[in-house]
Design a protein around this nucleic acid. Structure first.
Lengths: 263, 263
DNA sequence: GCAAATTTGTTCGTATGTATT
DNA sequence: CAATACATACGAACAAATTTG
């Protein structure tokens, strides 16, 4: 009896959900009904609900009721390059093929292109002066019509001035940005480094991914810095993935082919 | 007036924390005091506090008060192998060197060794029958005395019977488990695959890492499957890292040496 | 070591607002 | 428009944890 009543109620309901007595998507009894059943007031039941909500197992809809949450099937992204493509592959292309292998339909929005002054983080990764101008290309990415990731690539402004002017056009670069930079500037991406963190979504991300506003569901933030043949950073790509529907794989060394049919 | 009062109070306090008016570690005024100041009841202030708690910006300590949270300095783990070591390196050794480079002091508990029946997930990764026996070796890992990760490695039971009997001893394998398997069974780890997900911590993890019980702070779960020269899985290592103090790096291709002094 | 004061934690009751059916 | 169900807010009381005298 150490734990307070609202925790006991929450635990009982959670157990019912875990064991499948309550199925995903199913509606729970109303708060007043549960109060009667457990011999508690409606406010105490509501405390139990709040607890279950922060645990992410139920959600409430005003005017309707409380429901067991449905977990979406995760999207798996491989961070290491496909050996057939090598480290020079394009992010969009790479991720795309990875998704197709899972027989899903990816869709990217038209890029939104801006020129900005580099933030401290971006400047440090690109090794340019803080506040110097950079090109940012932003796309929204969907899989099977569900919001999947938000991706922004940053390039030094000099690239466009030296001949890679398509970087400034708000239009998909068909051959891929990396290949385009190779053809126009002779730059080759010989490697990249990913830096993966987890943080609460900002307001824009929460809206796009349809996440609760209170930051219960967090997002992956992946900084990918690409390096050219001289060891200089040529691009920084920041991709945001909500953790509730995304997973990553990293392949190192010689691996047998993966069986994806059972995923 | 669109947003409810408890959100307005929370937003005001959050802004004070963002701008530094309230510093990390600093104590907020008591709930009753804040209620008077904002013209709200104590319960409404408490709703604001709950909101800030799920946002992760404050924490309450019964009998003491409410405090602005201090964010710990993150630990960075590189998932791709050091090129000098190659994909055959040991997890413990690999991670260890990675941490030392950041001039921190890692410490591993003595391993806790058990034989178990393989769970569905472990069996699938190791490609053994579900329910067949496996050896599990579990260590608790600290850096600078703060709990850092929980790591469990699983090996097929056959390894011990065929000569690698030190796997069953609750004692550190000095030369590293991978090298030991090479010497005793001729197995070489030629590659591995990491599979990274994020989930709420279970009760044991929450206690070890000192995380709040309500699952607000989630953990990375990294499944690393190591493969031998025949392409057969030889080991599965599951490592749990709390996301509030851990980050990952992934290196692909040819990279310039990283400047770690500025981290 | 104990008692008092302080502060947050839990629970109840009640009233009113808002969203959906 | 009415009924239903969750959302917000107030007030009150007692419990539990911590610090201080």
């Amino acid at each position: 009896m150490a734990s307070p009543m609202y925790r006991q109620i929450a635990e009982d309901l959670r157990a019912q959900i875990e064991t499948g007595t309550l199925e995903p998507g199913q509606q729970l009894r109303t708060e007043t009904e549960l109060g009667k059943r457990y011999g508690a007031s409606r406010n105490t039941v509501r405390d139990a609900m709040k607890w279950l909500i922060t645990l992410g197992v139920v959600e409430t809809r005003p005017g309707q009721g409380t429901f067991v949450v449905k977990k979406p099937k995760p999207f798996v992204t491989t961070l290491t390059a496909d050996p057939k493509i090598g480290p020079g592959g394009d992010e969009v292309a790479n991720y795309g093929s990875d998704v197709e292998a899972q027989r899903r339909i990816p869709f990217n929005s038209e890029p939104q292109v801006e020129t900005q002054k580099a933030s401290a983080t971006i400047a440090a990764e690109l090794r340019v002066a803080e506040g110097s101008h950079v090109i940012s290309r932003h796309v929204k990415r969907y899989i099977d019509d569900t919001p999947w990731s938000l991706q922004t690539s940053f390039y030094p402004m000099g690239f466009a001035l030296k001949g890679a002017d398509q970087l400034l056009l708000a239009e998909d670069i068909k051959i891929g940005a990396v290949k385009y930079l190779g053809e126009t500037l002779g730059l080759q991406q010989v490697g990249y480094r990913d830096w993966i963190t987890v943080r609460a979504p900002d307001a824009i991300e929460a809206v796009f991914f349809n996440l609760p506003q209170d930051g219960r569901i967090v997002v992956f933030e992946n900084f990918r810095t690409g390096f050219d043949q001289t060891g200089t950073p040529m691009r920084v790509t920041v991709t945001i993935f909500p953790t509730d529907r995304n997973q990553f794989k990293v392949n190192v060394g010689n691996l047998p082919p993966e069986d994806i049919s059972t995923e």
